[in-house]
Amino acid sequence: MLSYQHAFHAGNMADVQKHALLAWTLAYMVQKDKPVSYIETHAGRGLYRLQSAEALKTGEAEQGISRLWDAFPETHPYRERLEETKGMFGADAYPGSPMIAALGLRESDRLHLAELHPQENAALNEALGSWGAHIRREDGFDFAQSLTPPTPRRGLMLVDPPYEVKSDYDLIPKFFAQVARKWNVGVLMLWYPILRDAPHRVMLSLLESQHPGALRHELRFPPAREGHRMIGTGMFIVNPPFGIDAETARLDQMFRDLG
């Protein structure tokens, strides 16, 4: 299935958690001189418009980043990526995770992106094709398997599937186990939705048993609209960087302040 398009959901509450932790982690990693590999399995289009028909139809950005933009300090890496994107592409521009990565990495680092959806892949190439990114139109899980362990070996992988195929919940623990064996120093970040019927529970139980030192961070919020199934957002991070607990605590407080 290739029906999912993130333009309807860009800037929602889940994006805020995912992108804040991603931007913070990359900023932490590039403090060292050693180069970094960044791999993303389900990249989307990389750049979104918060005033697009898709975004306005759902109103999720208005409930998410539009409310929380100013809650991040000006020196926070996520806030910096937001401001840079707006300055480069216009007032309603919002960075997807590939753009956040591209803006946070250095010339010595490597950027690997997979997106299978043809229209999303074309938009991704338009947004980041001139940035030196290695962009492929293929299954993200196969793409990541073929790259790991990457060169440079130090790095981060973001796994952010749309979960429109229910078998993803069964596939991901096996995928993470395989990648972690091949790339034991990689920071592996998984985003997952928290839905009313909690299909993530078995997946997270398996992941936690396989990766006992990993970080699990979840946030809850009201559904975006009547009948919407998503009531929260989660991140599971293998080899979490030092100090990330303070960042998850910041997000916890930010969401509590929203009520």
Rank of each mutant, 00 (worst) to 15 (best):
residue 199 P to I: 06
residue 223 P to L: 13
residue 211 H to N: 13
residue 198 A to Q: 14
residue 222 P to C: 12
residue 154 R to S: 03
residue 182 K to W: 05
residue 217 H to W: 04
residue 214 A to Q: 02
residue 173 P to W: 05
residue 175 F to R: 05
residue 176 F to D: 04
residue 193 P to V: 01
residue 227 G to P: 10
residue 237 I to L: 14
residue 180 A to C: 03
residue 238 V to W: 05
residue 232 G to C: 04
residue 208 E to A: 13
residue 164 E to K: 07
residue 163 Y to P: 05
residue 228 H to P: 02
residue 197 D to H: 13
residue 212 P to Y: 08
residue 202 V to M: 09
residue 168 D to F: 00
residue 231 I to Q: 12
residue 157 M to C: 15
residue 208 E to S: 14
residue 172 I to Y: 01
residue 224 A to Q: 10
residue 231 I to P: 06
residue 228 H to I: 05
residue 175 F to D: 02
residue 189 M to A: 15
residue 209 S to W: 00
residue 160 D to K: 04
residue 159 V to I: 15
residue 221 F to N: 07
residue 231 I to W: 02
residue 177 A to I: 11
residue 223 P to E: 11
residue 159 V to S: 04
residue 172 I to P: 01
residue 184 N to Q: 14
residue 209 S to F: 00
residue 216 R to L: 14
residue 213 G to V: 07
residue 216 R to H: 08
residue 156 L to D: 07
residue 189 M to W: 02
residue 222 P to Y: 10
residue 198 A to N: 14
residue 157 M to L: 15
residue 217 H to I: 09
residue 172 I to T: 04
residue 177 A to D: 15
residue 174 K to W: 01
residue 192 Y to T: 06
residue 186 G to D: 12
residue 155 G to A: 06
residue 177 A to M: 11
residue 186 G to W: 02
residue 181 R to S: 14
residue 161 P to G: 02
residue 230 M to G: 03
residue 191 W to S: 08
residue 155 G to S: 07
residue 154 R to Q: 06
residue 222 P to T: 14
residue 223 P to T: 14
residue 236 F to R: 09
residue 168 D to I: 03
residue 172 I to L: 15
residue 179 V to Y: 01
residue 232 G to E: 05
residue 199 P to R: 01
residue 220 R to T: 13
residue 215 L to H: 10
residue 186 G to I: 09
residue 195 L to F: 07
residue 184 N to H: 13
residue 172 I to N: 01
residue 194 I to A: 09
residue 210 Q to W: 02
residue 215 L to T: 14
residue 231 I to C: 14
residue 203 M to D: 03
residue 234 G to I: 10
residue 169 Y to V: 10
residue 220 R to G: 14
residue 154 R to H: 05
residue 204 L to K: 05
residue 183 W to F: 04
residue 176 F to E: 06
residue 224 A to H: 10
residue 161 P to Y: 03
residue 181 R to C: 08
residue 207 L to G: 00
residue 199 P to H: 04
residue 201 R to Q: 14
residue 234 G to V: 10
residue 231 I to T: 15
residue 184 N to A: 15
residue 200 H to C: 04
residue 175 F to Q: 06
residue 184 N to F: 10
residue 188 L to K: 08
residue 227 G to I: 10
residue 153 R to G: 12
residue 175 F to A: 13
residue 160 D to Y: 01
residue 180 A to N: 10
residue 190 L to P: 02
residue 182 K to I: 00
residue 234 G to E: 13
residue 163 Y to D: 03
residue 158 L to E: 12
residue 215 L to D: 15
residue 176 F to H: 11
residue 173 P to D: 09
residue 204 L to S: 06
residue 227 G to T: 15
residue 216 R to K: 11
residue 195 L to N: 12
residue 238 V to Q: 03
residue 159 V to W: 01
residue 235 M to H: 08
residue 158 L to C: 08
residue 183 W to K: 01
residue 218 E to H: 02
residue 165 V to Y: 04
residue 216 R to F: 00
residue 239 N to K: 09
